[in-house]
Amino acid sequence: MPGSSRRRPGGVLYIPDVTTERPRTHELRAWRPAVPGITEVLHAHFTDHAYPRHTHETWDLMILDDGAVDFALDRRRHGASDTGRVLLLPPGVPHDGRTVSAAGFRKRVLYLTTDVLPDRLAGPAVDGPILGDAPLRRRIHRLHTALTYEDDALEAQSRLAFVRERLLVHLDAHRVRPPGQEADRLAARLRELLDARIRTGLTLDEATSVLHAHPTHLIRCFTQAYGLPPHTYLTGRRIDRARRLLLAGERPADVAAAVGFYDQAHLNRHFTRHLGVPPARYARAARDRGR
């Protein structure tokens, strides 16, 4: 019925708002991830909507997936229709937003705390809220993908660190330092930490605290030394351990917990991506061969 709502798979709230003037469709998914620095993730599709003038306590980091949006920031109007660009709205500064065509727009938004970006950097963001930076856009997209799964905390934290770094460069508050002579030493120490924490896992904050290194610098050192980022290395070690347990006859649900995956679905997703088959089928094939 008009004005009612129903839940779609994946937590998407579908709200058809049918009026005599113009049909409106809102699709909205929002959640709070278990990643420090991000208060909310929002994915939305609006075909006819206007945000009133308001402010946030957080930074509003938005990418468009389709359509166009018009917004005012600190009384100056802007238009964004290029899906390759990034919108960054600072905390405490009034802004609005509205659709500009019948197709509306699709957006993905991260609300970042002032621990990620200090509010003292609001000035440069007000002067230039639309960033034409394709690498930054790709980093944000990959962060959204990681945030879709609550069980990949290290990956999400690592991707947030690189998004933060590039935003700070845009706001003229950071210079990227390439790995130096200390790279191999830092990488080896991080690898030791990861090997010791295969089941329990390791957060990026813990690693940087123990090793006294900047997050993105630490990840760059590790990637330079071993050819893959820390979160990918940890997942690979877990998969190796899971294979041994499955071949020994352990149940996939027990294996998931034993090697550090959040649950069996988490194990299934990564195992299938690595080996092309889910763990139960892998174990069954091994049993069949042994008969």
Rank of each mutant, 00 (worst) to 15 (best):
L194V: 07
L194I: 10
L194Y: 01
L194Q: 06
A196Y: 03
A196M: 07
R197H: 15
I198R: 15
R199Q: 12
T200A: 15
G201Q: 10
G201N: 11
L202N: 04
L202T: 04
L202F: 01
T203K: 11
T203W: 08
T203M: 08
L204M: 09
L204N: 07
S209D: 14
L211S: 06
H212Q: 14
A213T: 09
H214G: 12
P215H: 08
T216I: 06
T216Y: 09
H217P: 07
H217L: 14
L218S: 06
L218T: 05
L218R: 08
L218I: 03
I219D: 15
I219K: 13
R220W: 05
C221V: 05
F222Y: 12
F222I: 06
T223M: 04
T223V: 05
A225F: 02
Y226R: 13
Y226K: 14
L228A: 09
L228G: 05
L228M: 14
P229Y: 02
P230H: 06
H231C: 07
H231Q: 13
H231F: 09
T232Q: 15
Y233W: 10
Y233C: 02
L234W: 01
T235R: 14
G236I: 00
R238L: 00
I239K: 06
R241F: 01
R241Q: 12
A242M: 05
R243L: 08
R243F: 01
R243E: 14
R243Y: 02
R244C: 06
L245P: 11
L246H: 09
L246N: 11
L247D: 13
L247C: 10
A248N: 13
A248C: 08
G249H: 09
G249D: 13
E250G: 05
R251S: 07
P252C: 06
P252Q: 10
A253P: 04
D254Y: 02
D254S: 13
V255Q: 12
V255D: 13
A256C: 04
A256I: 00
A258E: 14
V259F: 03
V259A: 04
D263S: 01
D263I: 00
Q264W: 01
Q264F: 00
